[in-house]
């Protein structure tokens, strides 16, 4: 089923558009970095060091890439399963001797796989281009790519489940809203971490709770942490878009548990619906 759905995804124009957009993004990034590096005098006392410059480049590219990838994973995840059901193809597949769990995962996972492949291309491209121009060693590439999978997985799991319960447009809007809320809450928590006594504030507590409701930001910040140069120091001014501390093991385990729970919930619902 996975291969069938993957084949179906590859025929969609949105994937081609996303691939072209990713390529264009890398080219623009490469152009920007080359121009920027040429204009910086690293010998000057006021200029940032290569590690700080690399961190700025990676963080700003990451922010743009995350928008593109969020849109892609939402658009891909929201349509596959509902389309298979509404066109009557799911009845055709479900009548074959295949467990519904295989059908569910086989139909929905290609959206995550394609998004992850494109995300790897984007972030690997950013790393390569940055390291060509700036002396730069990422903190942990493996952590970054693990967190990348978790970040996309959280959005994918949520959108897939939402698409079973709601129509396409409301599912997409809700998913975008959740991502926005998670990003904002994550920023608040990061800033609160460097401001004395801020963590006791009610607003911060709500933000911390919201990060558990939709943990995409926890995973995304793990990605940024993994990509950030080892030599760099995240300043207070960057706290909102970056990370101020090493992600704890709970920050990595929790999104995985959350994904499993939401996928389980989606499957539970899918296994009980009447297929048209």
């Amino acid at each position: 089923m996975f291969l069938n759905s993957l084949e179906q995804l590859f025929r969609r124009k949105i994937l081609l558009v996303a691939m072209l957009a990713a390529l264009a993004f890398i080219l623009l990034f490469w152009l920007s970095i080359s121009k920027a590096v040429a204009s910086i005098d690293f010998q000057s006392s006021q200029a940032p060091g290569p590690a700080e410059a690399a961190m700025l480049a990676v963080f700003s590219a990451g922010a743009v890439a995350s928008t593109l990838l969020t849109a892609l994973v939402i658009l891909l995840s929201v349509s596959i399963l509902p389309d298979e059901i509404s066109h009557g193809r799911m009845s055709f597949w479900a009548a074959l001797p295949i467990p519904r769990l295989s059908l569910y995962l086989g139909t929905t996972l290609p959206a995550l796989a394609c998004s992850y492949a494109l995300a790897l291309f984007l972030f690997a491209g950013v790393l390569v281009v940055t390291s060509v121009y700036l002396d730069f060693t990422p903190t942990s590439v493996s952590l970054a790519f693990l967190c990348l999978a978790m970040w996309l997985g959280v959005i994918w799991a949520a959108v897939t489940t939402l698409s079973l319960l709601l129509k396409k447009i409301p599912s997409m809007l809700l998913a975008f809203a959740l991502c926005g809320m998670a990003g904002f809450s994550g920023g608040v928590v990061q800033v609160a971490g460097i401001v004395p006594d801020a963590e006791t504030h009610g607003f911060v507590k709500v933000a911390q709770a919201l990060r558990y409701v939709f943990p995409s930001d926890t995973a995304f910040r793990g990605l940024l942490y993994g990509l950030a140069p080892r030599e760099s120091v995240v300043t207070e001014g960057l706290a909102f878009i970056g990370v101020t501390a090493t992600p704890g093991s709970w920050d990595i385990v929790y999104p995985v548990l959350w994904i499993c729970a939401i996928v389980g919930l989606g499957y539970w619902y899918f296994a009980r619906i009447d297929l048209p």
Binding site: G88, F92, L96, P97, P99, R100
Partner: peptide, 16 residues
């Protein structure tokens, strides 16, 4: 699912 081995179903409306 194993009970549907060898079973073939043609729905009334299927859109490939």
């Amino acid at each position: 699912s194993i009970s549907r081995r060898g079973v073939r179903y043609l729905p009334e409306h299927v859109s490939f």
